[in-house]
Design a binder for these strands. Structure first.
Lengths: 107, 107
DNA sequence: GAAATCGTCAACCGATTGGTTAAATATTCC
DNA sequence: GGAATATTTAACCAATCGGTTGACGATTTC
């Protein structure tokens, strides 16, 4: 039996999928547009999106022939809460977040 | 090329490994004692500990014939920071943390 | 020094993962 | 209706994963 939090962490363990989530931070996107920057087949990206969707990290809505992908940040809450049980580290690390955004959105 | 954060999330995606980390919240433990509550061979637990160790989530120190396992919560920081980029949810969710601790340490 | 204890290693297994290509299915445009 | 576009599906592949068992090496105990 695989739980929700299992699939959340598993989905996040792949750099392509994390990059996709970061792209979706900026705006909702069609599958083809999600795939564009990656050196990978559309079918592969489609599979990654299925993984993200099953983990609840994104939702997908088909309008016409285009399937729109939307970030669903709530799904990260459980995982985030889980992790905070282990931290003596700052739960809000603004410097870290800034570095993260520069690095992720920068390239 | 697999990065540090990849292996952190991958390590956290397995319920046995998360349970081990929760046990180590309470105290450092020897490998045999970590294995005791699980319906699984010692070798399997040893592998799980290797995964956690490579992800930097625990450290292991051998004293005599006993290998002590220690939680290293710092390794979660990068992953935690990464996730916080996606949250409109509360970064410090005390109610959630409380429920988490009850559930994880309770059984 | 022999026996018990602690833990890892090696070989194996079936299932899953992350990718490919090629074909199929909608949908829209002309 | 036929061509182009958007996306998924199917079949396949090599690599990794999570588990097993059995042998092994190191350490402690008697």
């Amino acid at each position: 039996m695989s739980t929700r939090i299992d699939s959340t962490f598993a989905a996040l363990s792949d750099p392509t999928r994390r990059a996709i989530l970061t792209m979706l931070l900026e705006d909702d996107m069609a599958v083809t547009d999600v795939a564009e920057p990656f050196d990978m087949s559309l079918a592969a990206i489609s599979k990654h999106l299925t993984v993200l969707s099953r983990a609840g990290l994104i939702s997908q809505e088909k309008r016409g022939r285009v399937k729109w992908c939307k970030l669903e940040p709530d799904a990260m809450r459980d995982a985030s809460v889980w992790m905070q049980g282990f931290g003596q580290f700052e739960p809000v690390d603004l410097d870290g977040l800034e570095r993260f955004l520069e690095k992720e959105l920068g390239d």
